[in-house]
């Protein structure tokens, strides 16, 4: 069966250990979490977990069923085959030297990266986009002097239907 990346959006009661329960359910059954994002929703006692995991459709269904068994899980939604928007974010620390100052400036301008902090010797930029855009940015960054990088997990939101 075809293995495919799935985006799973999980609403949970914001109880102690809830992330450990969700992560442990997948880990304990032998499934891998590729990326993960968690925060509260507009209701502070309810959190949303968005994660990506790869597997065949039957594996994903099994994961959904296992997650539904958890007492603190309210709902599990597979956003893969529904219309939804996706974003990830990179924070990148770029070293600046006389040799590459123009290149860095050029990259920032042409890619419309958002500069958060800048000085003579370094700059920190914020890059957001969907997976393709992030992958493109990462390729572009390979030509620059990256000192440090942090990438968030993917967040996704279902379009109204």
């Amino acid at each position: 069966m075809e293995r495919k990346e799935h985006i799973i959006s999980i609403l949970v009661h914001n109880k102690p250990d809830v992330l450990a329960r969700v992560a442990g359910t997948l880990g304990g059954k032998g499934y891998n979490i590729d990326s993960l994002c968690v925060n509260t929703t507009t209701q502070k006692d309810i959190s949303k977990i968005v994660m990506t995991t790869a597997g065949s459709q039957s594996t994903i269904t099994r994961i959904e069923n296992q997650l539904q068994r958890l007492v603190d899980v309210i709902s599990v939604d597979d956003l893969t085959n529904v219309e939804s928007v996706h974003r990830e974010m990179l924070l990148v620390h770029l070293n600046i030297s006389p040799d590459n100052a123009d290149m860095v400036k050029n990259a920032i301008d042409t890619n419309r990266w958002k500069v958060i902090v800048t000085s003579d010797t370094y700059t920190i930029v914020e890059i957001t986009g969907d997976q393709t855009q992030i992958d493109f940015a990462l390729a572009r960054l390979e030509t620059l002097d990256v000192a440090d990088i942090t990438r968030t997990g993917l967040v996704a939101l279902k379009l109204d239907d």
């Binding site: 102690p16 250990d17 450990a20 329960r21 442990g24 359910t25 958890l70």
Partner: peptide, 16 residues
């Protein structure tokens, strides 16, 4: 013990 038994209980609680 809540950490240890998380995978082998239906649910568990630590009453704080």
């Amino acid at each position: 013990i809540t950490g240890i038994t998380r995978p082998c209980t239906k649910h568990n609680f630590l009453v704080r």
